[in-house]
Simulated assay, not measured.
Amino acid sequence: MTSENPKVERRGLLLVLSSPSGAGKTSLARALLDADPHIRLSVSVTTRQPRPGEVDGRDYWFVTEPQFQDMVEKDQLLEWATVFGNFYGTPRAPIEQAIAEGRDVLFDIDWQGTQQLSERMAGDLVRVFVLPPSSEALGQRLRQRAQDPDEVVAKRMAAASAEISHWAEYDYVIVNADLADSSAALRAILSAERLRRERMTGLSSFVRGLQAALT
């Protein structure tokens, strides 16, 4: 006896990358997006000024501080934080829609935003912390970016220790000594998390139908 089994689908997931500035999480995020067409980057809103080459709506949604505060008051953000004097946040509606439709979303956010997401969407969250291979490498990477003045680089170096102290709050840790190796590790994490039983919608009905067809 044969019958058509119910379809197994998957709820989307939120993949978070956090690190001290300069550890390479942005490079890892770009590499993952290039390699995997089934995940997209969450576009945050921010009050900071655009850097050279950044495009509104692609890299960030650039808003004024009053506009940002209005979004906070209307509960339109899943998480938000102040970083080096600027506000950053994640719009709620597009993320909730993506998860419900089985689409994965990549986040390049700090530990503060990750904690807030953990409070609201813990079951959908996969947290990865990226560490530099050494303090010397971190300082070199920050100076090579050549986008921030020396005083900003010094502030980011001073803040790195405090940011790194949150590594144990994450599900996975990647020491980013080599971009290719770290990218492969990140893809492996994503592949495994997509296969988690609790993300599969309709799985129980599928198994019951399979069993029924075998008896």
Rank of each mutant, 00 (worst) to 15 (best):
R11H: 15
R11W: 14
G12N: 04
L14N: 10
L14A: 10
L15W: 01
V16P: 02
V16I: 13
V16F: 09
S18W: 00
S19L: 03
P20Y: 10
P20C: 13
S21E: 06
G22R: 09
G22Q: 11
A23C: 09
A23P: 00
G24Y: 11
G24K: 12
G24V: 10
G24Q: 12
K25S: 11
T26R: 07
T26H: 12
S27N: 13
S27P: 09
S27L: 15
L28R: 00
L28G: 00
A29D: 12
A29F: 09
R30F: 02
R30Q: 14
R30A: 07
R30P: 02
R30C: 07
R30N: 15
L33W: 10
L33A: 08
L33E: 07
L33Y: 10
D34N: 10
D34F: 07
A35E: 05
H38D: 11
H38P: 00
I39M: 09
I39L: 11
R40V: 03
R40P: 00
R40S: 12
S42G: 05
S42P: 00
V43D: 00
V43C: 06
S44W: 01
S44E: 13
S44G: 14
V45W: 12
V45T: 06
T46S: 05
T47A: 03
T47Q: 13
R48A: 03
Q49F: 02
P50H: 10
R51Y: 14
R51C: 03
R51K: 14
R51M: 14
R51S: 13
P52V: 02
P52M: 09
P52T: 08
G53I: 04
G53V: 01
G53S: 09
D56T: 01
D56S: 04
D56R: 00
D56I: 03
G57C: 06
R58W: 02
D59Q: 08
Y60R: 14
Y60H: 15
W61F: 14
F62S: 00
V63F: 08
T64H: 04
T64V: 01
T64A: 02
E65M: 07
P66C: 05
P66K: 05
P66G: 05
Q67V: 03
Q67E: 15
Q67L: 01
D70M: 09
D70W: 04
D70G: 11
V72F: 12
E73D: 11
E73T: 10
E73M: 05
E73H: 08
K74I: 04
K74Q: 15
K74Y: 13
K74A: 15
D75H: 14
Q76C: 02
Q76N: 05
Q76R: 08
L77A: 05
L77Q: 08
L78P: 06
L78Q: 13
L78R: 15
E79R: 14
E79I: 01
T82A: 03
T82D: 05
G85V: 10
G85Q: 14
G85A: 11
F87S: 11
F87V: 07
Y88P: 04
